[in-house]
Nucleic acid binder design. Structure first.
Length: 476
RNA sequence: CGGGGUGUAGCGCAGUCGGCUAGCGCGCUGCGUUUGGGACGCAGAGGUCGACGGUUCGAGUCCGCCCACCCCGACCA
């Protein structure tokens, strides 16, 4: 096989994705089935995602805390739908210190139960509310089939858990965090997600309502990239999270939970990547600018490195890497950093020193069109600007792709054709779980989320009148 | 769990009508020459051929069983 060749064509999309993850050194297969080793470069990307999300959480008044990884099995069984939803994918610890445990411990698949237990202790009065806590953690779900970043037995995420005095406030919080995710995806990851509510059959186990941000991957499949749940009083009742209100009445809290995981890394790869490798959005890229110095002789070396130095010092706010590896040709370095998705490359050689220019190559526009030769002068301003241009262009490109692959349909034939061959279908939907299951069976497409809609129309499947529209797609 | 596929050097593979000391490319080590799109020469290192059992004078190759991983489904962030 030719090691250099990659193809993102739909039939090879999965292979292409795996190759990208492995060759860009984002992650590796672990010697444990279904688990993943996140390598330093991949973790650096995740750290930037964390940083951006965390600053948004702080801005909305949330604080971080940590809860145990082990959950007594009995906690899991308190909320009926929750346990039913998660039971098949739990890892259970039965032994500790060489002895069988009196009560098995579940490795957290999510932390509603243990956090709910603590909230019950912490919350007494309406004055204690709202509680707005986030946790950065790893969780374990025993999935049948795994895929790097998208679905691994162990994954990293943040999970926010909040408790409120009223249903309105909880709903507001649920939607506010959905907005935070939407904003993050669009403006940092350059992924034009579609936000909306999940259907009853797709919602989180134990939630009253689940909201999602859905992203379209390069093969037009959908990927749920973040969720925000309004848990109503379901968990509050199961875990006895109560407070005395202003009228001295004992009330159950309304709780929410929301999360974004390392799956976001997979979403970025599958949304922007091309046949040359990764394309990372400048806002999140571990390395925003790579500088490749080029010289033949030692005399050239000094003058080139002097310019390199000046450029690095002139861009103090950017994440820059100078690739001064010896014994590797510039061509090799170009390809190497393209594979790793670095948004902007600056080549500095003897010609540039002489002409006072910089050779720049944009990762979002492959080949010659992405190259430009600009005067040194003013690079302190135009390099950061170019990164913003790249960021904006990536979003625009992804948005165009998304919009070109969403089709409104009003009959089943068209629906089937769209979800099987073209992308996402948007259609009037009569909101019937049985029909949803039938559609899935016949076309493999699931209801991704409800869409904004006005007025009424005829459901393409049931023929009934409805006021709801929904997006359907095949998904990861 | 069902269907398909693959296990041979760090990676990618050839060898599979049983037969010599198991090969190729990339990578790796040393020396030298090289540096504007994946450099070159010379010299090297690196293998219980996934595991176990069987057939045979002889097994990477044939037979049996097992294991691991990948892809497609069912399940899911």
């Amino acid at each position: 096989m030719d090691e250099k060749k990659l193809t993102s064509q739909a039939e090879n999309f999965s292979e292409w994705y795996n190759q990208l993850v492995l060759r860009a050194e984002l992650a590796d297969y672990a010697p444990v089935r279904g688990c993943m080793v996140v390598r330093p470069y991949g973790w650096a990307l995740w750290e930037n995602i964390q940083k951006e999300l965390d600053s948004r959480f702080k801005a909305t008044g949330h604080v971080n805390a940590a809860f145990p990884m082990f959950i007594p099995q009995s906690f899991m069984t308190k909320e009926k739908e929750h346990v039913e939803g998660f039971a098949p994918e739990l890892a259970v610890v039965t032994h500790g210190g060489g002895e069988e445990l009196e009560e098995p411990l579940v490795v957290r698949p999510t932390s509603e139960t243990i956090i709910g237990t603590m909230y019950a202790k912490w919350i007494q009065s309406y004055r204690d509310l709202p509680v707005l806590i986030n946790q950065w953690a790893n969780v374990v779900r025993w999935e049948m089939r795994t895929k790097l970043f998208l679905r691994t037995l162990e994954f990293y995420w943040q999970e926010g858990h909040t408790a409120h005095a009223t249903a309105e406030e909880a709903q507001q919080e649920t939607l506010r965090m959905l907005d935070v995710y939407t904003d993050f995806a669009r403006n940092e990851a350059a992924i034009p997600v579609i936000a909306g509510r999940k259907s009853e059959s797709e919602k989180f186990a134990g939630a009253s309502a689940t909201y999602t941000i859905e992203a379209m991957m390069g093969d037009t499949k959908a990927l749920q990239s973040g969720t925000s749940h309004n848990l109503g009083q379901n968990f509050a009742q199961a875990f006895d999270i109560k407070f005395l209100d202003e009228n001295n009445q004992l009330q159950y809290c309304y709780t929410t939970s929301w999360g974004v995981s390392t799956r976001m890394v997979g979403a970025i790869i599958m949304t922007h990547g091309d046949d040359q490798g990764l394309v990372l959005p400048p806002h999140l890229a571990p390395i925003q600018v790579v500088i490749v110095p080029i010289f033949r002789k030692d005399e050239e070396r000094d003058s080139v490195m002097e310019v390199v130095d000046r450029v690095v010092k002139g861009l103090p706010s950017l994440r820059i890497k100078v690739d001064d590896r010896q014994g590797v040709t510039p061509g090799f370095k170009f390809n190497d950093w393209e594979m790793k998705g670095v948004p902007l490359r600056i080549e500095i050689g003897p010609k540039d020193v002489q002409n006072h220019t910089l050779a720049l190559a944009r990762r979002d526009i492959p080949g010659k069109e992405g190259k430009s030769f600009l005067p040194m002068e003013g690079f302190e301003a135009y390099v950061p600007e170019m990164l913003e241009t790249i960021q904006a262009n990536m979003l625009a490109k992804a948005t165009r792709f998304r919009d070109e692959h969403i089709f409104e349909v009003d009959n089943f034939e068209a629906f089937k054709d769209v979800v099987e061959n073209k992308g996402w279908a948007k259609a009037w939907w009569s909101d019937d779980a049985a029909n949803e299951a039938k559609v899935k069976e016949e076309t493999k497409a699931t209801l991704r989320c409800y869409a904004e809609s006005e007025g009424e129309g005829i459901c393409f499947y049931s023929g009934r009148k409805t006021s709801k529209k929904a997006y359907f797609a095949r998904s990861y």
